[in-house]
Design a protein around this nucleic acid. Sequence first.
DNA 1: AGATTGACCGTGT
DNA 2: GACACGGCCAATC
Length: 103
Amino acid sequence: MTASSFTSRVHAIVASIPKGRVATYGQVAKAAGNAKASRAVGMAMSRNRDPKAVPCHRVVSSTGALTGYGMGKGIITKKSILKKEGVLFTGEKVNLEASGWKG
DNA sequence: AGATTGACCGTGT
DNA sequence: GACACGGCCAATC
């Protein structure tokens, strides 16, 4: 772990997201200690070097829209993974009401 | 050390 | 419901 305290915390939180559920950047940011650091959370994912330790694909925007993900086909792959995890989708967005972190 | 970026969020129109 | 603006944070160049 060569990351700062904040990033380290974010990694742990994202890694603790149950399978079949998704957390919003704001939720993770708040859990990390700064509810307004949602942007920093996104960067922690972007520069994340441990995709297997940090399932960044389980993190979506507050509206449930999939954002980022620079692997495979990007959003397409991300959506595919979440769907396989059992996350419910509403069109192209995640159903936070059903598959939200604390649903 | 300074300025810019980035996978955001909330509010207003 | 969709588009535009400002604000906050941390990491990167």
